[in-house]
Design a protein around this nucleic acid. Structure first.
Lengths: 347, 347
DNA sequence: GACTGGCACTCGCGGCAGTGGAGTGCCAAC
DNA sequence: GTTGGCACTCCACTGCCGCGAGTGCCAGTC
């Protein structure tokens, strides 16, 4: 496939494609052969460029909206551009510093997510989506177990993603102090540092290691913990920002923007979208028809996982028009993901 | 003022105004005299209606987009309609049941707010805004105080709004069991059932009632509780839904919708908007220029407080085009507020 | 005096033809 | 392989015209 492209398209044709993508992203208008040679140092005449364009069109990388118009890139054209022609532009120093200082001010997970959505939308001028750190992919950092009055037991779980959950277990009769102490230490050694699903499994095995008279208590506690671990609600949560940037689509509101706004409110759809990225930790770019949702098939989606050292906790990214500044957007998404990951593991 | 209106406008002119508002809301088009007499039983001819319309226009209740067009209501016209001509239409049985069952499924405050935003947007086909229950306006329902190992003390606070907060106090040396028991009961009697700011004051007074050797401990605990009580972050939070209903504005995207979308993302602005309602517990309707924000001055805002028995915890409402179904919207907002209040105090 | 039918007038909107210009494809020449 | 030239296409824009909805006014009627 790649050889095919190389055989078909020489260096200059690729340069023409790159120039077309760049100009079109810039001007939002179909770009013609004359404008191309004027704005770029291609060293050839418009006529030559026209010949190249004819080939590029035949191969499906560019298209004409109508006969007497310039060319615009197709999905396939953008794909080639992203894969082989674009270099991810590093963010400017001020931009990087802005991300850092803005995220450093965050006080908790909620705040980090909100700030990063805002940051991402601002940097890319597109719609930003940030998934809350996933419970199932984070690890158990701390478990507190405190007897309250009248046989109730308070459980507090702190995860590596900074989330704090508390549960209260109602027990038929109050456990002895020794039992609680024993349970506490055994639960700790079974769960601490482990991923939530794994911890659940180990905790389940714990029940049988207790004497029969204690099993009822242990079972309730374990069940409650397991429930808290697998609490899907926290995996379902998502923050969206910068929807006013939908204006960049420039299209007709009712036919194009409205369905998108609706899709963006359907967090279930967005979660699937984020979850379907090919590689959870790498930067994924899906362009136009590659986006697996009808409503967003005129858009492109740039996502990446975030979290500590290649252990993605969740995904974030942006949704924007196919005609977007891919190098800049990819750089911004990657940078924000890194900072968020760092901020989360620091706190 | 009211006498002025009554003197100026007889019964039929008011009926004409009502008919114009209703038809315009329905059809989205300027309404002419012929259409009016056809759709309503006014018992007079178009010519007569035209005379009435001329008076209504002179008084500023209706206007013509251009000479040869029908009339549309002005801000002032809608105001009169809402104040004197509209009767709040009760919701249908199925609608009411839908609210009830949908909100009953909620598991916590977060969920209640999310569900009510969705519900409100769906019922009104407008942009729904729900403020999270205010900490400062809710009361202390329960305080748990549990000594942990190594001189740490776990505090759990449950408020009337269903919110659960926990804090851990680090103490230089571990308090005796008696002290904790004493503190627990005195804190409870000072704070339980009281509003958070009030409770803070009473707790502060508590410090001096303890012996000097215990004051350091008591002071730390009270400080932590007070901090938790006045946690402003929870007062700042807001949920927005149904933004795709902005399509109902039908106006040009860039000039009108875009600024609105931006305003709706500025939760600070929205919080002010909700906070500025004339009466916190009553239904407030602000129309067009009455809305205190430039970006939303082509919109109307319907809000009301919610919470248990006339003790508003926070505010919710909708933002929609001036041309909205006021009776229906007002009914929906009021109904959802009631159900949310009930659900919160139940849980 | 209030209401009505008739009538002239206004003005936005949709359809239509004409024009200009941007851009192309092709071809012959270098 | 590249280039300049040229004929061709087709969209965007403009001005024009006729239609129809709606009005305001006036004279006539109950």
């Amino acid at each position: 496939m790649t050889e095919g492209v190389d055989a078909m398209l020489d260096e200059r044709k690729l340069a023409v494609l790159r120039a077309i993508v760049e100009d079109y992203v810039d001007t939002e208008e179909p770009v013609g052969s004359r404008a191309l040679v004027e704005r770029h140092q291609l060293g050839v005449s418009p006529a030559t460029v026209r010949n190249d364009m004819a080939v590029l069109e035949e191969e499906g990388f560019i298209a004409q909206p109508h006969t007497s118009a310039g060319r615009i890139p197709t999905d396939k054209g953008y794909r080639l551009f992203v894969d082989r022609l674009a270099t991810i532009r590093a963010l400017s120093g001020p931009e990087r510093r802005a991300i850092g200082t803005f995220l450093d001010g965050a006080v908790d997970v909620e705040d980090i997510v909100r700030r990063s959505v805002r940051m991402l939308a601002q940097l890319t001028h597109q719609v930003a989506i940030v998934q809350y750190p996933s419970m199932t992919r984070s690890t158990v950092r701390h478990i507190e177990m405190v007897p309250l009055e009248s046989g109730r037991l308070l459980l507090v779980i702190i995860t590596s993603s900074g989330r704090v959950e508390q549960r209260i277990v109602e027990l038929v009769d109050a456990p002895t102090e020794e039992l609680v102490a024993d349970l506490r230490s055994r639960v700790a050694s079974a769960a601490l540092g482990r991923r939530l699903p794994e911890a659940s499994l180990l905790l389940a095995e714990l029940i049988d290691t207790f004497g029969p008279q204690d099993r009822a208590v242990v079972a309730s506690v374990v069940t409650t913990l397991t429930e808290a671990f697998s609490d899907e609600r926290s995996d379902e949560r998502i923050a969206v920002g910068g929807t006013s940037n939908l204006a960049r689509f420039g299209a007709d509101f009712d036919t194009s923007l409205r369905p998108m706004l609706e899709a963006l409110e359907e967090h279930v759809v967005l979660l699937k979208l984020l979850g379907e990225a090919t590689s959870p930790s790498l930067l994924t770019v899906r362009i136009g028809s590659e986006v697996p949702y009808e409503e967003l098939s005129t858009a492109s989606v740039v996502t990446t996982g975030y979290g500590a050292q290649h252990e993605p906790l969740a995904t974030l990214g942006v949704v924007g028009p196919m005609r977007m500044d891919y190098p800049g957007t990819m750089a911004a998404v990657r940078a924000v993901a890194r900072y968020v990951g760092r901020t989360l593991s620091d706190s």
